[in-house]
């Protein structure tokens, strides 16, 4: 499966071929560029696939792949004009079904997104899921995701993103500071059960990521946004490193290391010490670090710098001090 790299690639190519043929059959003549756009792949990938399809076929009565047993293509039109017109068809009539796993992946994705503001129509989602299920060649595997919890804040942010207007809200950061922020909302992001807003913060004059559960009193303004998603580089990863980041050395239980993967920079040197891994992670400040480490007791320990250890120790000790000795 996942580790067999060669066959995976060939499998993907096969799925593409089996999908491309029915699409081409539905179009008498279509340009390579249009097909590439439709499938969101490079034009050269379409040309390669078409060349292969055009010489493929079935062994036929003779077992010899006679001409009539092969697909055929208007070759001149293809070579000269970059247009595709299949002139002989074999074996394939229609689009393939989804595999059980493919259907399951989409169904679980739909479940997760079913609470989004624009998906208010639960019945439509249920219909879509049953279509996927019926359109699969095997029962979808039993993988499910809880519908993500979303609230009025998300709906309001969504509204402002769609309208392209600025948003104002109170934000309490991990330092415990409260400020009224004015933001150009650019993208709503999530990782599993946690939701974030990525936007241009007018107060900080920088791209910032805000946790939705730290946003209160959001209010849509009538002012148009000044930065657009196309103007700024929105990184694919939620936690983008910055030159100002602080680097700390940690010991983490091997089993928990994947949970911190987002904080561990590429190329970080990791060494194994017993069942622990010593590595480095980057944080924007120690306030976020102390909360993270305190929520993973016995699993993560900060090794250095001393200042980071002290901040974590003080945080935890202050927490413990709120309980009496007799507890």
């Amino acid at each position: 499966m996942a580790e067999r790299k060669g066959p995976i690639l060939a499998q993907d190519k096969l799925a593409f071929l089996l999908s491309l043929v029915p699409f081409l059959m539905d179009h008498d003549r279509i340009s390579v560029a249009d097909v590439a756009r439709h499938f969101s792949v490079p034009a050269e990938q379409i040309r390669e696939a078409v060349r292969l399809i055009a010489v493929s076929g079935i062994p036929g009565e003779t077992g010899q792949y006679q001409h009539a047993d092969l697909f055929d293509l208007a070759w001149d039109d293809f070579e000269d004009n970059d247009q595709i017109m299949l002139t002989n068809l074999v074996a394939i009539d229609d689009s393939p079904r989804f595999s059980g796993r493919e259907a399951a992946a989409l169904i679980a994705g739909l479940q997760y997104l079913s609470a989004l503001p624009e998906h208010a129509d639960r019945a439509a989602i249920a219909t879509l899921m049953s279509k996927l299920s019926r359109g699969a060649s095997a029962p979808p595997s039993q993988v499910a995701v809880e519908a993500s919890e979303t609230d009025a804040t998300l709906a309001l942010i969504r509204e402002s993103v769609a309208a392209g207007v600025q948003l104002e809200f109170d934000y309490s950061d991990s330092r415990g500071e409260h400020e009224r922020r004015r933001v150009d909302p650019l993208r709503i992001e999530s990782v599993d059960a946690d939701w974030y807003l990525r936007g241009w913060c007018h107060l900080r004059e920088a791209l910032r990521t805000f946790r939705l559960d730290r946003i209160t009193n959001p209010q849509i303004t009538s002012e148009a946004i000044t930065y657009h998603a196309a103007d700024v580089h929105l990184p694919e990863t939620l936690f983008e490193g910055s030159v100002d980041d602080l680097v700390v050395t940690i010991d983490v239980a091997r089993s928990a290391a994947p949970l911190l993967a987002d904080y561990i920079p590429d190329g970080a040197v990791s060494t194994e010490i017993g069942d622990r891994i010593r590595t480095t992670m980057r944080v924007s400040h120690y306030h976020g670090l102390k909360r993270l480490v305190a929520s993973m007791p016995g699993v993560v320990t900060v090794v250095e710098p001393v200042e980071a250890r002290r901040v974590v120790a003080d945080w935890a000790a202050a927490g413990a001090a709120r309980y009496g000795e007799g507890d």
């Binding site: 999908s19 989804f98 650019l186």
Partner: peptide, 26 residues
């Protein structure tokens, strides 16, 4: 698997509405 499912879906020739901008759920 979800990428392959989308390829098969495109096989049907439907063009989707405008892409849902402003979301990056994971």
């Amino acid at each position: 698997e979800s990428r392959r499912a989308i390829v098969k879906l495109r096989s049907l020739g439907i063009t989707s509405d405008e892409p849902v901008l402003g979301y990056a759920p994971r």
